[in-house]
Design a binder for these strands. Structure first.
Lengths: 226, 226
DNA sequence: GGATGAAATATTGGATACGATCCTGCGACA
DNA sequence: TGTCGCAGGATCGTATCCAATATTTCATCC
């Protein structure tokens, strides 16, 4: 029985792989804000041509991770405190709204999904891998909002989140902040499970606002130190 | 005195020109929802290669105008009534919020800009070109929100708007709706000029909500008709 | 006659090659 | 000494060409 010549992973396009690769570097902090991304360097590093690299960069620009200027290439976008306020204010409007819509049409399956996301997050704290923790944190938020059936708004939130994600990592690292976030996640889930839209919305808003305040003050300290 | 060899327009890249070209076709209704966009056809039409066409399509996907599926090309994205509700709910959260922020830091120059946008819109009604009208309508909204200094949120709004824009055109065409929109714009501007944040926000919200209702009901009729 | 499957065709994805633009460093001139 | 202009190299933007995938066509079988 001849196996298929290539593994299933090959199903995705090179562009997508490159985009993932660069995004991971940025989110992981390997490419800090302001870092110049050379198309040829990435291409050589991955053994591909520059075309998929360019197209990956275009996608990342749409997600707000890089900024492209004509004939000057792509630089990793840097977040000012004002940018962070901008991004989080938008999240603070959208997330509470969507969670109410989600609760309005919540199935038991949805609740189970959120519970699983919560447990995954819990387990990751024990292991302590910050990148994984960041990913699972967002997975929890996504699970909360998914039942709202608002793909466009979810896409917007995705970009808002990924623009601030790598800065959130700084906040999420200290163990104290982690356990605080976990407790908040538990509280949110409890209200969510009971389908209490108002309370869930309130808790979620506070949860996001706390994170925002933490990041903004951190960025302001950084800018003052400059 | 030797003039520069090429006109100033050449300053932008081919990709940008192609993106503009396709976007205009979509917004203008020449490419209806669901229409397959062949890279080679566009390339031949404009006398360029397929590479800038592909990159233009990637940008348009980020703006929500087309959907790209691997090895199947790009199709003009079609809006369901649910999508429209999704998009407009997000706008209804963001625009009133941003206009309040804008008023909080309003300069006389900003007010003059809005007034000019309002007059341009007024003048376009007289001429009656629907594409131009659509563009100037959004220019007015943008001018209102610009002083908020929230570039990230503005970028989000831009994509939300351009996804629904061409359906708005249907609503904006009847003369009655046009004059209604104009009167609303005038009312909004009056409150804005007086720096009345609450009233401006209220009027703007209603203005957007009215447009949303019109479009959604129109889409629903279309879906029922199949 | 309709469904199934394989070859032919069309279309997209990616690699290589070339021209255009921008940045850097050196020298000329005020 | 400081500023300007001008090579030279580095990097990006686009065209051409090849490979991979999807769609269509057409013969075959039930």
């Amino acid at each position: 029985m001849p196996t298929p010549p290539k593994p299933l992973l090959q199903r995705q396009t090179v562009t997508a792989m490159v985009a993932e690769y660069i995004a991971a570097k940025i989110i992981g902090g390997d490419y800090p804000g302001g870092h110049q991304i050379r198309q040829e360097a990435i291409a050589a590093e991955l053994g591909v041509s520059r075309i998929p690299v360019r197209e990956a960069l275009l996608q990342l620009e749409a997600e707000g991770l890089v900024v492209i200027r004509t004939h000057r290439g792509a630089v990793v976008s840097d977040l000012s405190a004002d940018d962070a306020i901008d991004l989080f204010d938008a999240r603070l409007l959208l997330e509470p709204f969507l969670v109410k819509k989600a609760i309005a049409r919540l199935s038991n399956q949805d609740i189970a999904n959120v519970e699983r996301a919560l447990r995954d997050y819990e387990a990751a704290i024990a292991r302590g891998d910050p990148k994984e923790l960041s990913r699972l944190n967002w997975a929890f938020h996504t699970a909360l909002l998914e039942p709202s059936m608002r793909p466009r708004s979810m896409a917007v939130l995705q970009t808002l989140y990924s623009s601030a994600d790598r800065y959130l990592r700084l906040q999420i690292e200290p163990l104290k902040a982690q356990t605080k976030a976990l407790q908040e996640h538990r509280d949110i889930f409890e209200a969510y499970r009971l389908r209490d839209a108002v309370e869930t919305s309130r808790l979620l808003k506070k949860h996001v606002a706390d994170a925002a305040e933490e990041i903004v003050s951190q960025l302001k300290r950084g800018e003052a130190a400059g």
